[in-house]
Design a protein around this nucleic acid. Sequence first.
DNA 1: GGCCTAAATTAACAGTGTTAAGTAAGTGAG
DNA 2: CTCACTTACTTAACACTGTTAATTTAGGCC
Lengths: 206, 206
Amino acid sequence: MGVRERRAREKRYLRQEILDAASELFVKEGFENVSMRRIADRIEYSPTTIYLYFKDKAELLESICQETFSKLMQRLSKILEQPGDPIARLKRGLLAYIEFGLENPHHYRSTFMTPIPEGFDAEKYIKPESAGIQAFDFLRRCVYDCIAAGKFKSKDAELASQTLWAGMHGVTSLLITHSHFPWVDRKRLLHGVVDTLVAGLQVHEE
Amino acid sequence: MGVRERRAREKRYLRQEILDAASELFVKEGFENVSMRRIADRIEYSPTTIYLYFKDKAELLESICQETFSKLMQRLSKILEQPGDPIARLKRGLLAYIEFGLENPHHYRSTFMTPIPEGFDAEKYIKPESAGIQAFDFLRRCVYDCIAAGKFKSKDAELASQTLWAGMHGVTSLLITHSHFPWVDRKRLLHGVVDTLVAGLQVHEE
DNA sequence: GGCCTAAATTAACAGTGTTAAGTAAGTGAG
DNA sequence: CTCACTTACTTAACACTGTTAATTTAGGCC
C-alpha cells in the first residue's frame, strides 16, 4: 500500500524539480525569455510533461512567485513582532519590501508589474496577487500601530497604506526597469523615499 | 522633379497610416497581444511591408510612444510657464503626469514599465526613455523652483526629483496593473500620494 | 504472463517576429 | 517605343512560441 505514497512522493519531487529549473531560468533570463521547451530540456523531460504538473506557463510562474514571496512574508513578520517605536518598525518594513524586490527583480516584475490577463472572474482576480495582498496586510498593520500611537496626521489607515505601497512600488519598479537611469546613490534614494513618505504622513511634531 | 517629392510624401503617409493602425490596436489590446500580421491586415498591406518603415516591432512601438508622450510634454510645459506658487505648480505637474499615465496605460506601460531589452550600448541606452527623460526634466525644474523659493527641507534637487518620480510612477503603475485591487477613491488616492510626498519634502512651516 | 492504470512521449496545430528571394510597377535614358 | 533600373511591395520560408490530442512506455496487481 506504500506504493501509492511513493508515487505521490515522486510526483511531488518532479514537480519541485520543474519549479527549481524554471525558477533558475526565470531569475537569470526573465519569464518571457524562457520557453517551456528550454525548461523541459533542463530537467531532461519532454515539454509536455510540464503540463501534467502545471496548467500552463502562467500557473507555473505563479507557483514560483508564491514560493519566493513566502520568504518576504517571513522577513516582514519578523519585523512586525519586534517591539519599539512603530515608526521605526514601519520604516524597516518598507525598506525590507524594497530590498526584497530588488533582490528578486524577475519575481517582483511577474507578480506586481504584469497586468492580470483579462480572464479574472472570482478566484483568478484574488489569487494571483494573494502574495501581494498578504504583504499589504503587514504594511497595514504597521500603519495601524502608527495611527494608534498618534504619530500620523490622518486616521485613514487605508489611504496611508496605499500611499506608502505606491511609493515603495515606485522606487522598486523604476530601479528594476530603468537601472541605467542616472540615479543618485541607491541607499540614499531608498532612505530618501521612505523618509519623505513617512514624514509626509507624520504629524509635524514641534 | 516633383516626382521624388510626391513619392516621399506617399511614403510618409503610409508610415503614418501604419503608426495609426498600430497605435489603435495597441491602445485597445496591448502591445504584446497585437501581432505584426494583424497590423498589416488592418492597413491592407503584407506584414513585411511594415519592416520597410520600421526596423522591428520594438521600434514601431517606440515611435508610437514618442508620439504620445509629446502630448504630455505639451501639457507639462503649459503648467511650467504658469506663474504663482511653485509648490502648487509642482503638485499640478505631478497630477498631470499621473493622469496622463492613466489615460494612456498601454503607452505608459511600454515606455516606463518594460525593461530595456539587454542590447543597450550607447544610443539604445538613452533613446528609449528620451520621452521619460524629457518629462523628468520638467519635474526637476519644478523642484528647482521650490528649492529656490526656500520651500524644501533639503537642497538636493536630484534626490527630491527622483523621490517624487518614484512616488508618481508607483501610483500610476499600480493603478494600471492592479486595477482590481480595493483602492480607496481614486481622486483621494492621487491627491493623497501627491500631498504626502510634497509634504514630506517641505519644511515644517509652523 | 497478461491486464490495467498512470506517466511520459511524439506529432501536430496555430500562432509569433523576422529575413531572403522574387515580382510588379513606374521612371529615365537611348 | 523600348530597355534597363530603381523602388515598393509580396510570397515563401525559417526558427521559434505555448498548447493539445493521440500514442507509447513502464510498473504494480491478479
